[in-house]
Design a protein around this nucleic acid. Structure first.
Length: 305
DNA sequence: TAGTAGCACAGAATTACTTCA
DNA sequence: AGTGAAGTAATTCTGTGCTAC
């Protein structure tokens, strides 16, 4: 039933946003990206659309059809009170292969209808019966499988419609342009919802993985801390007490007696000349500060630049 | 040129209805 | 037969961008 229908919708979703919108480019865990991501919404690519060869994609900024519509609208009063025909069109009409369960009530009055569309709406209103006309409850149409399939196909080609596309599709389906428009609106909403679900799932998995990684690292830190306390570890290392650091320049140095990679004589503050202050021993094993990390043995032994 | 009104359109939220378990 | 959940067509509201004045 619904599940099968849902699959038929062909909702191929991914983390990328369709068309011109920016992709969600998480690079956290590439391996986690759902397989659908790669092929996501490829159907929406307007560039390869064969439909667009017939009907240029709608462009809000430079849509010639909009301009056409506007210039037409300039000739009519779009704010007029609904005519009888308009009222009838509001009652809605079922296409031959779709089903209507009840009769619709009101509809936005602000909506302007361009000439062609207007005529079309009126055409559909002709078949209305008296009983439908009198019913004030909202009409709900059930699209036939064929209608839904065609709508899906065109949605795959492009998820928005310009007026010409809308008209053509409405004509093809035997629906009112408004119905086609509404279907596309709802379809976009469903797509977005599905996309959000996918995104949430992905982020959830990212979070889980990061938590696991964090736990692993914490454990590693604990192990290293435990290790540094063991005598064997000390044996392998130069005793920290032999290391000294100049508090002035924070360079590591060793007393002349100790062998080290850093020659105290070459150190400006620790040469034969009397030092202006006493070098302090470095304790690399001091517990790290809660926020700023204290020096590790590796930090101390690493030659400074 | 800037400001504004009118318009179309899209998205979000919601309602109302249908279908099914 | 009644009911709740899910799906979806339709409505309403709001924001945005464009055009004409």
């Amino acid at each position: 039933m619904m599940m099968a229908e849902k699959e038929d919708l062909g909702l191929s979703l991914s983390l990328s946003v369709p068309q011109n919108q920016h992709s969600l480019q998480f690079n956290l865990m590439p391996s986690l990206v759902p397989s659908t991501a790669a092929s996501s919404l490829s159907g929406f690519n307007p560039q390869k659309s064969s439909w667009n060869a017939t009907f240029p994609p709608s462009d809000q900024n430079s849509d010639p059809y909009r301009a056409e519509t506007r210039s037409f609208l300039r000739g009519i009063d779009v704010n007029r009170l609904p005519s009888t025909a308009d009222c009838e069109e509001e009652a809605g009409v079922s296409s031959p292969n779709s089903t209507i369960s009840s009769v619709s009530g009101k509809r936005s009055e602000r909506e302007g209808i361009n000439g062609e569309e207007h005529e079309m709406e009126r055409d559909y209103s002709r078949g209305i019966s008296d009983e439908e006309d009198g019913d004030t409850s909202r009409k709900k149409l059930r699209l036939s499988k064929d209608q839904a399939a065609i709508l899906e196909e065109s949605f795959k080609e492009h998820n928005t419609l310009n007026p010409k596309q809308k008209m053509a599709l409405a004509k093809q389906l035997g629906l009112r342009p408004r119905q086609v428009e509404v279907w596309f609106q709802n379809r976009r909403a469903r797509t977005k919802l599905k996309q959000t679900e996918v995104d949430c799932e992905f982020l959830k998995r990212c979070c889980e993985n990061l938590t696991a990684e964090n736990r692993r690292l914490q454990k590693e830190v604990q192990e290293l801390r435990a290790l540094k306390l063991s005598p064997q570890f000390y044996m392998q290392m130069t005793p920290p007490t032999t290391l000294t650091m100049c508090p002035s320049c924070e360079r590591v140095a060793v007393p002349p007696s100790a062998s080290s990679t850093v020659d105290a004589r070459s150190h400006p503050h620790m040469g034969p000349a009397p030092h202006h202050h006493r070098p302090i021993p470095i304790n690399p094993w001091a517990p790290a500060a809660p926020i700023t990390r204290g020096p590790t043995p590796f930090d101390v032994l690493r030659p400074r630049s």
